[in-house]
């Protein structure tokens, strides 16, 4: 103990520098998270009172036995897998295209067009998309029917609501993943491709066996970022569907949020903890897998 106090005294200037950062992190990060875990162990009715009643893991048991939650969890995972795959495939394809010798002029314009939605306030972007999908106002169905295609159900049809969210979210996020791939492509070793070319490798072989392995850092980062992003999908639901139609877009974060509104604090925070655990486990797994395999 005295040793620690001694170090703190000696390094006091650094503790002074870190103090505001530590205060904000603890007050608005660590403390609320611990409170959330604490609330998840109490009965909802007493959760916010002076003497909360602790009921152990009963909320977790109740939540895991709730078919709506389990359905919502599977829906969230399915949406996450689809979104991560769609976003990364799109971003990688577009970054590869922009990096190729086929696109010389206009490169910056194309990157700006894709990145602009990233810095656009998500509420504004999703509000516009909500109306673009609209059956009577929207431009999407007007365009589809004008060229003789069937109308798109958009947000109002149970079959297409999730796809509609995925497209709007791809519009908002893909530019971010794209520039990370693009930055990684820019720092790769191009001499390897020339060597492969001289050895007679086709364009596809060069991309698959020479370029792609060098993109491992960007792939790992993008996978982890996108996974965290889409597991937490929330704003787009609040703006566009409110979980509907039916329960088709009722993901975990939104379901838990609805329980807060009904004052079911214990169950809502138990859901938060479960979702958080999934986020942590999946991200760490992706990092570990990405680091372990050869080629880096």
């Amino acid at each position: 103990m005295t040793a620690v106090i001694h170090i703190i005294a000696r390094e006091r200037v650094f503790y002074l520098f870190v103090l505001p950062f530590a205060a904000l992190t603890i007050l608005f990060g660590v403390w609320p998270i611990l409170l959330s875990v604490q609330v998840s162990l109490t009965a909802s009715a007493s959760a916010l009172g002076a003497s909360p009643k602790y009921i152990g893991l009963a909320n977790y048991v109740a939540v895991l036995a709730d078919p709506l939650f389990v359905a919502s969890l599977w829906r969230t995972l399915a949406y996450t897998v689809l979104s991560v795959a769609a976003n990364l495939a799109f971003a990688l394809a577009f970054a590869t295209l922009l990096d190729s010798s086929l696109i010389r002029r206009g490169n910056l314009f194309f990157r700006l067009a894709l990145f602009l939605p990233v810095i656009t306030p998500d509420v504004a972007g999703y509000v516009v998309w909500r109306w673009l999908y609209d059956r009577s106002f929207g431009a999407i169905n007007a365009a589809l029917t004008s060229i003789g295609l069937p109308a798109f159900g958009g947000l109002s049809s149970p079959d297409t609501a999730m796809a509609a969210l995925l497209i709007a979210e791809l519009w908002h996020h893909a530019g971010f993943y794209m520039i990370i791939f693009f930055a990684n492509l820019a720092i790769r070793d191009r001499s390897l491709e020339e060597a492969a070319h001289i050895d007679g490798a086709t364009t596809w072989q060069r991309w698959r066996y020479v370029v792609l392995p060098q993109l491992r850092p960007a792939l790992v980062i993008n996978t982890v970022y996108a996974m965290i992003q889409f597991l937490k999908t929330f704003t787009v639901i609040v703006v566009m569907t409110k979980g509907g139609p039916g329960d088709r877009t009722n993901f975990v974060s939104y379901y838990a949020y609805q329980l807060f509104d009904q004052a079911r604090y214990g169950e809502a925070t138990a859901m938060a903890t479960i979702l958080f655990a999934i986020v942590i486990v999946l991200s760490l797994t992706a990092y570990k897998l990405g680091d372990r395999e050869p080629g880096r």
């Binding site: 992190t25 990060g29 958080f276």
Partner: peptide, 17 residues
């Protein structure tokens, strides 16, 4: 940990804090 936490689920605790 804070930046990985689903922030929208911190409603009640942040409110309390």
């Amino acid at each position: 940990v804070t930046i990985m936490y689903p922030y929208m689920l911190l409603v009640i605790p942040v409110y309390i804090v």
